[in-house]
Design a protein around this nucleic acid. Structure first.
Lengths: 92, 92
DNA sequence: AATGCTTACGGGTCACGTAATGATT
DNA sequence: AATCATTACGTGACCCGTAAGCATT
């Protein structure tokens, strides 16, 4: 489970639509599908219930989203906090 | 910046020794070096000061570690919380 | 037939190990 | 010379897109 995949999961959890998710992240729909599938295998349960006209979070997916979102954002802010205004490489 | 790399960073920040870090994570020393280098490029500043006999966190590295550790652990617990006791796949 | 998700397939990229190199004590 | 980190280099793995397949309306 890598950050890029978590981003895909969280975006789909928000959009509830593979096409829009793919568009927002500038990847193919196939990629979104494969990524979700992979994460479902990793977790051991479906994260979304796909009917033909609807995509919705399962109970497990909901739990995952709730726990993951703040942690994911925490990583972003941690990196942003560390990044210096201007590159700060000492002479090497 | 992917989770696997963050794990390497956090482990090195704890061990302050490339060899032990590599051993703990079951990867090569080279991998640790390459990974850290990559993250330093991403952040825009050195994360560790390596002298021949010592490895220590820079100020930037310290900030990153402080922010990253709780977020990283949060991801682990989020996944653990979601994972069902027994696989719960509906009939497909 | 149109819309939306999944599966098959292939190629380009890069993760990661081995080996060689450099630096310090 | 021993110890520790970096760099060079090659290969296997996997990411990810295109295209075909399925299902539903």
């Amino acid at each position: 489970m890598e950050l890029r995949e978590i981003e895909i999961f969280l975006t789909l959890a928000e959009e509830l639509h593979f096409g829009r998710t793919a568009e927002r992240l500038h990847v193919s729909v196939s990629r979104v599908s494969q990524s979700i599938r992979k994460q479902e295998r990793a977790v051991g349960a479906p994260l979304f219930a796909r009917t033909s006209r609807k995509v919705e979070l399962t109970a497990v997916g909901e739990v995952l989203r709730t726990g993951l979102r703040p942690a994911y954002e925490g990583i972003g802010t941690a990196v942003a906090a560390a990044r210096p205004r201007r590159d700060a490489w000492p002479a090497r």
